[in-house]
């Protein structure tokens, strides 16, 4: 029997919860920015996988985790530029293109992994944690929150910066107006196409980072289809949070706790199948959607292409 509620156990629990929460949070931040600008990006799942794969390859080749994150983000930016070109600039159906991105990302990452690493199946080592002096000495919270890999702190910073950008700056206001009433942004001298394009690329970068975090930190390796619907969960989190990034953070943490609790339950003698764990977040989301958030306040112009001069 594992000693529950010992310091070591609780630390491992919090670390596991954060390892599941951060990739979803990063992707949901990217989706939030996209949705606020009026673009529904259904390609998050594919962007996570592409970011994860190329981040994994870069880290294997160079040995640097930071380069892995950079390459992962770049790869997802390149894939999301398809969504930018087709859905934002040409105004084509965002749902169809988004599903295409998901399929392309899943297919490309799986084919390339099989081609290059299918037989060797390498694993990565651990990223050296940044230990924050003094704070990391606190029991439980210290080793779990203040002795994390560097990307953990960068992710938290990104959430904060994005929140300030969206709600405290002029460019954030312009971005949100592109999602509420693009014609008013146009009339005020803003460029809807550029605003939305940048939002889509930002979403791609965040999903790429999320995927790379999943592969490099949470799992320590890449496996084809390793996201198991996490990208779609990120889309839902973005919708439930209604654009507020504190909510994105909180819901992602709740998701992480769910996953960590599932792992704990598997360690006990209860013998709960893995699928019961994976089904939980989706059921929770459905319950919330059914009873509490039936009219989720989405941006008015979400998924509607903007055609200049059209009424």
């Amino acid at each position: 029997m594992i000693p529950f509620f010992s310091d070591a156990f609780l630390t491992a629990f919090v670390v596991a919860a954060l390892a599941s929460a951060i990739p979803v949070m990063l992707a949901a931040i990217g989706e939030t920015v996209g949705e606020q600008s009026g673009v529904l990006n259904l390609g998050i799942e594919g962007l996570l996988l592409i970011g994860g794969y190329f981040g994994f390859v870069a880290t294997i080749v160079t040995g640097s985790f930071w380069l892995g994150f950079l390459i992962g983000a770049l790869a997802s930016i390149i894939l999301s530029s398809i969504l930018m070109a087709l859905s934002v600039l040409l105004g084509l159906n965002q749902i169809v293109v988004g599903i295409g991105i998901t399929l392309a990302g899943t297919g490309v990452s799986s084919v390339l992994y099989d081609f290059s690493y299918g037989s060797s199946k390498p694993r990565l080592g651990l990223d050296a944690p940044w230990t924050i002096p003094f704070l990391s000495d606190i029991p439980v919270i210290g080793p779990s929150l203040f002795a994390q890999p560097g990307m953990f702190y960068v992710s938290m910073l990104l959430a904060l910066v994005t929140s300030i950008w969206l709600y405290r700056t002029t460019s954030g206001l312009r971005l949100r107006s592109a999602g509420q009433k693009p014609s008013s942004l146009d009339a005020a001298g803003g460029n809807v196409a550029v605003t939305r394009s940048l939002a889509v690329l930002f979403g791609g970068a965040m999903s790429g980072l999320g995927g790379a975090y999943l592969a490099l930190i949470s799992a320590g390796t890449f496996t084809p289809g390793m996201t198991h619907g996490m990208g779609f969960l990120a889309i839902v989190i973005a919708m439930l949070a209604r654009g507020r990034l504190l909510w994105v953070l909180l819901i992602s943490l709740i998701y992480g706790l769910f996953v960590a609790m599932g792992t704990v339950l598997q360690l006990t003698s209860l013998n709960i199948p893995n699928d019961v764990v994976t089904i939980m977040p989706f059921i929770a989301v459905m319950i919330v959607l059914t009873f509490f958030a039936r009219r989720s306040a989405l941006p008015a112009a979400l998924a509607i292409p903007y055609v200049r001069g059209a009424r």
Binding site: I82, L86, L90, G91, L92, N93, V96, V97, I99, G100, I101, L103, A104, T106, G107, V108, S110, V111, Y113, D114, F115, G118, P224
Partner: peptide, 24 residues
Amino acid sequence: VGLSVDFLLIIVALILFFMTIIEF
């Protein structure tokens, strides 16, 4: 030829992209 079967997904995704472009 030792190719992952997920290769089909790439073809399907490409058809989706080209379909929307031709549509445009």
